[in-house]
């Protein structure tokens, strides 16, 4: 069983929602990313999403775009990110998921990628510009290597697409909470998420994690309350990192924020 599956099963028994923070690898450097992963695990995070920077991240808002630019100043590559994963794996079992754009994987070579990723100890991959229709090469390769290919659903997804994505997605189904790109949003989360979650959960037994725009413990709490199996927080956390680049508090502040998010998620359950 994959580490992602084991994690969701374990949390389910406790009636708990996973907190899945997203950080950009190499922002501002790979050593910091490693420390962040290990410290966030200690702070109660359940799964970590690691971004690999791409020059043209068309599904990302300004915060993650800027993080990619910071990371690309050191030319962080897919090979570097897999190196980081292997490094983390020497001491940690926390599930690690790579989120990036398809060209980097295509250019690396899909077969070479799944093999290198599996031996590094990566658990899953999310490619927002690769819909299932175009993933007919990657899906079987990843399956053979034991790497989960996680696909996304959005508020615009039709019934047919919900069925398709629920069928092919491995590890969990990623529900994009809003019609838009990544980026922190203030205020209440859209109430339509509750209904969408119900619809998706009716179509699959796989865990469903919700991301895009979720920025505060209160929002995370609400999403957990609505029955999500996981809450993904990216831009808001990346923003904390951005604000502390070059200062000694970067790790402490980011981890502190992740801890409050996990508390939010815990509070949301059973309300």
């Amino acid at each position: 069983m994959s580490r992602i599956k084991i994690t969701f099963n374990r949390l389910k028994k406790k009636n708990e929602t996973a907190l899945i923070p997203y950080i950009m690898a190499g922002d501002p450097d790979l050593a910091t990313t490693k420390t962040l992963i290990l410290e966030m695990e200690k702070a109660g995070c359940d799964i970590i999403e690691i971004g690999a920077p791409f020059s043209d991240p068309l599904a990302d808002g300004p915060t993650i775009q800027k993080a990619a630019i910071r990371s690309l100043q050191n030319h962080t590559s897919i090979a570097d990110v897999l190196g980081l994963v292997a490094d983390v794996r020497t001491t940690s079992k926390i599930p690690l998921i790579l989120m990036t754009y398809y060209n980097l994987i295509f250019h690396y070579g899909e077969e070479r990628f799944v093999n290198d990723a599996a031996s590094a100890g990566l658990d899953g991959v999310i490619l927002p510009d690769l819909p299932p229709e175009e993933a007919t090469v990657l899906i079987p390769l990843a399956k053979k290597a034991g790497l989960d290919t996680i696909f996304l659903l959005a508020p615009t997804s039709t019934e047919d697409r919900i069925k398709l994505v629920c069928k092919v997605s491995q590890g969990f189904v990623y529900y994009v909470s809003l019609t838009g790109v990544t980026g922190a949003r203030a205020g209440a989360v859209q109430s339509s998420i509750e209904e969408s979650l119900k619809k998706i959960k009716a179509a699959t037994d796989k865990p469903v994690a919700v991301g895009f725009g979720i920025s505060t413990p209160a929002q995370a709490s609400q999403i957990a309350h609505w029955g999500a199996d996981g809450v993904i927080v990216g831009s808001a956390l990346v923003k904390v990192i951005e604000e502390h680049v070059g200062t000694p508090e970067l790790v402490v502040r980011a981890v502190e924020f992740a801890r409050t998010l996990k508390q939010g998620v815990l509070a949301g359950h059973g309300n």
Partner: peptide, 21 residues
């Protein structure tokens, strides 16, 4: 039908846009 010209083309778009396309 899927928008391919031999090995080229296709529809490498985020899910949000797939229904619009």
């Amino acid at each position: 039908k899927k928008g391919h010209y031999g090995i080229y083309g296709g529809k490498f778009a985020p899910e949000t846009l797939m229904p619009a396309l």
